[in-house]
Amino acid sequence: MIVFVRFNSSHGFPVEVDSDTSIFQLKEVVAKRQGVPADQLRVIFAGKELRNDWTVQNCDLDQQSIVHIVQRPWRKGQEMNATGGDDPRNAAGGCEREPQSLTRVDLSSSVLPGDSVGLAVILHTDSRKDSPPAGSPAGRSIYNSFYVYCKGPCQRVQPGKLRVQCSTCRQATLTLTQGPSCWDDVLIPNRMSGECQSPHCPGTSAEFFFKCGAHPTSDKETSVALHLIATNSRNITCITCTDVRSPVLVFQCNSRHVICLDCFHLYCVTRLNDRQFVHDPQLGYSLPCVAGCPNSLIKELHHFRILGEEQYNRYQQYGAEECVLQMGGVLCPRPGCGAGLLPEPDQRKVTCEGGNGLGCGFAFCRECKEAYHEGECSAVFEASGTTTQAYRVDERAAEQARWEAASKETIKKTTKPCPRCHVPVEKNGGCMHMKCPQPQCRLEWCWNCGCEWNRVCMGDHWFDV
C-alpha cells in the first residue's frame, strides 16, 4: 500500500509500505531520502505521535493516508518512550493509558441525555464484534464512529474520518494533550489543546475536521460531520418502519427517538411537499423529531443533505422563500418566477423588478396576487391545505425507538455506581478489583462488596467470576 509523507509540512511524497511495516522502518526510509538522522524524526498522525514499535496496521493507516513527519531533536526523557523501550505506560498493571487514536474515538455516547454525564468515556458498548469485510486488514473493525456528507465523488452519507490540525499553522502536526470525549470537544473551536510539532510553531489549540472515509482524499478535501447519525450498535428499532437498520439518525429530543435514513428521507420529502418545515429565527429551515417532541429541531442543517441534490435544492429554495415571508415580504405569483420581494408595508401595487435578471417585471396586487387592478379585489380565496398535519407515529413504536432507553438498560445490566462519587462504572470481565475512572475520584473498590478495596476482598473473592 501507499502512504503519503509530508516532511516538515512540505509537499508530500509517496512511500510504499506493508501492513506489518513498523513506524521506525518508515522513519528509516524517510531519513534516507531526506539525509537526516532517523532518531530525530517524529511521525504524527490523527493528533498522535506514533511509536517506533507500532506497525502501519496498528495505527489504522489506510491506503493513501497522509502522515506528517517532522525533524525535531529529542528532548530529555522522550527518546526512550518513542523507541518502544522502557515506557512506564506499558508496564503490566499500570494505570496510565495511551491517548486514544482519533481513528478509534467514539462519540456516540454523547447523544445520551444530559443526566448521563461521564458515560462518553466510561461506558463502552460490546456491539462492535462484526466481522471485518472481505479485503480489510485482519482485526480491523467495521464499526463506524462518525458519518459525514461527502460532496465529492460519493454525493451521499458516508463513514467519516476525524482529523485534527494546529489552529495556528493549519498543519496536521499537532499532538493532542488528551483525546475528545464528546461532540462539544470536536465542534467547539479551541476547546481542546495540544502541542504543535512543526518547527518554530508555538500553536497549542486544536482544530478538528472530518474527511470522507470511503475514498482517498487530499489535504484540502473536508466534509461536514453529521453528528446525529450513528451506527445502530444498540439495535434500536426505527420509529417509523420498526426495522432494525444501521446507520440511524438520533433526534435530540428527551427520548432520543431513532429513525433509519430511508424513513428520514421520506419524512423530509413529505414535509417538504406540504411546505411544513419549521422556520426558526436562529436555526433556519428545519424539522423536529418525527414524533413531534418539543425542543427537538435539527440544529445542523447539513443533515438535510440526505435528501439528495434535487430535493436539497428545493429545500434551500423553500427556506429562502419562507425567510422572505417571515420578513413581511411577498413572492411573485407569476408561474416560473417566484422571486422574493420586500415592498413597503402599505404598498398595494407590487412590481417584480426586472433588474439584474432576477425579476420578471410582472405587476400584481398584494392582496389577491392577481395582475394589478384598481378598486376592490374580486375574490380572495383562503389558501387550502395549509394546516399542519401531524406525522403519524405509532405510540408503541415510539416507545421502542428510544436510544436513551437502550442506554439505561445497558447501564443497569453492566454497571454499578462507584461507592464514593456514584458514577456508573462498567465491568466487562476481569477481577473484582475496580478503579473509578473519574479523575477527581480514582477510588479503588470491590465490585462484589461495593466497598473500598481491602485485604478481605483480596483474599476471599479477588478473582471470582
Rank of each mutant, 00 (worst) to 15 (best):
Q276I: 05
G118S: 10
D464H: 15
G450W: 02
Q100C: 09
I2P: 12
V244A: 06
G77I: 14
F24A: 14
L226H: 02
P189V: 05
I44N: 02
S246T: 09
L341S: 12
G430H: 15
R89H: 12
C365V: 02
V148D: 02
I66S: 06
G139C: 13
L287T: 03
Y318T: 02
C253D: 00
H461K: 00
K32C: 11
E395I: 10
P37E: 13
R420Y: 15
E382S: 13
P159Q: 08
V43A: 12
G359F: 14
N52D: 14
L174E: 02
N235F: 06
D126C: 06
A390L: 13
V465I: 15
R392C: 10
K416G: 07
D280E: 11
S384T: 12
T222M: 08
A401H: 04
R392G: 09
H227Q: 15
R256A: 08
H200M: 12
Q155H: 13
C377Y: 02
S181G: 10
V43E: 01
C166M: 00
L301N: 09
D53E: 14
T414C: 09
N448F: 08
G375I: 03
V380H: 10
A230M: 10
T175A: 14
K408D: 12
F4A: 04
T103L: 07
C59K: 02
L261F: 08
Q78K: 10
V5S: 03
R271E: 05
G329V: 03
K408R: 08
C323G: 12
C253H: 01
R256L: 06
A383Q: 11
F364I: 04
F208T: 03
H422W: 06
T173V: 06
K427N: 15
H227L: 05
S233K: 11
P189N: 06
D115I: 05
V423W: 13
P37Y: 06
R271K: 15
H302K: 10
C436F: 00
S218A: 14
A92V: 11
P113H: 09
T240Y: 06
K412T: 13
Y318M: 04
P88A: 09
R314N: 03
H68V: 03
Q252P: 15
P159G: 05
I23A: 02
V164H: 09
C241P: 02
G114F: 08
L287S: 01
S233I: 09
A379K: 08
L297W: 04
N273K: 03
G361V: 03
A91V: 12
F264M: 03
G179F: 05
E221R: 07
S378G: 11
E28S: 08
P335F: 07
R275F: 02
Q282T: 12
S10D: 06
E28N: 08
T103N: 13
T237M: 11
C238R: 00
K129V: 11
V157C: 06
R455E: 15
S110G: 10
W445V: 05
E79N: 10
R42Q: 09
Y285D: 02
E399A: 11
M434C: 05
G329Y: 04
F209G: 07
L226N: 00
A82S: 11
D184R: 06
H200N: 14
Q40S: 12
C293L: 01
S255H: 08
G429R: 12
E374G: 05
Y318P: 01
P99D: 15
Q155W: 06
G35H: 06
E310W: 05
N356P: 09
R156S: 15
C337Q: 03
T204K: 11
E426K: 08
P439L: 10
S116P: 12
M80K: 10
V70K: 02
R234I: 04
F277S: 00
F304V: 01
C59V: 04
P113R: 09
N448G: 10
P216K: 08
F7R: 02
P113V: 08
L287P: 00
S378A: 08
S218T: 13
P133W: 10
S407E: 12
C360I: 02
T386F: 12
L176T: 06
E321Q: 15
H373V: 02
V148C: 05
I69M: 08
Q100F: 09
E310M: 07
S198N: 14
C59H: 02
V324N: 05
K427V: 08
S296T: 03
P281W: 06
V324E: 04
A206K: 00
P37R: 10
V117H: 15
K151S: 14
W183G: 01
S286E: 00
G338R: 04
R245G: 04
P37H: 09
D62W: 05
P417R: 10
Q389V: 14
R396P: 11
R97D: 12
T388M: 14
V258E: 00
R89T: 14
N81E: 15
P424K: 09
I259P: 00
D86Y: 12
G94Q: 10
R128T: 13
T410A: 10
A291I: 05
C377F: 02
E207R: 07
H68R: 01
W403A: 03
H302P: 06
T415V: 11
K408S: 10
S131E: 14
R396K: 12
T173K: 08
T242C: 15
E16C: 07
G94D: 12
G336I: 06
C431D: 04
D115E: 14
D60C: 09
E404H: 09
K129C: 10
V148A: 02
E207Y: 06
H303E: 01
Q316S: 11
I23Q: 01
Q165L: 08
V456A: 15
E16S: 09
Y315E: 00
K299L: 05
Q71G: 04
D53A: 05
Q389D: 13
G328C: 04
W183V: 02
Q347E: 12
V36M: 05
L112Q: 14
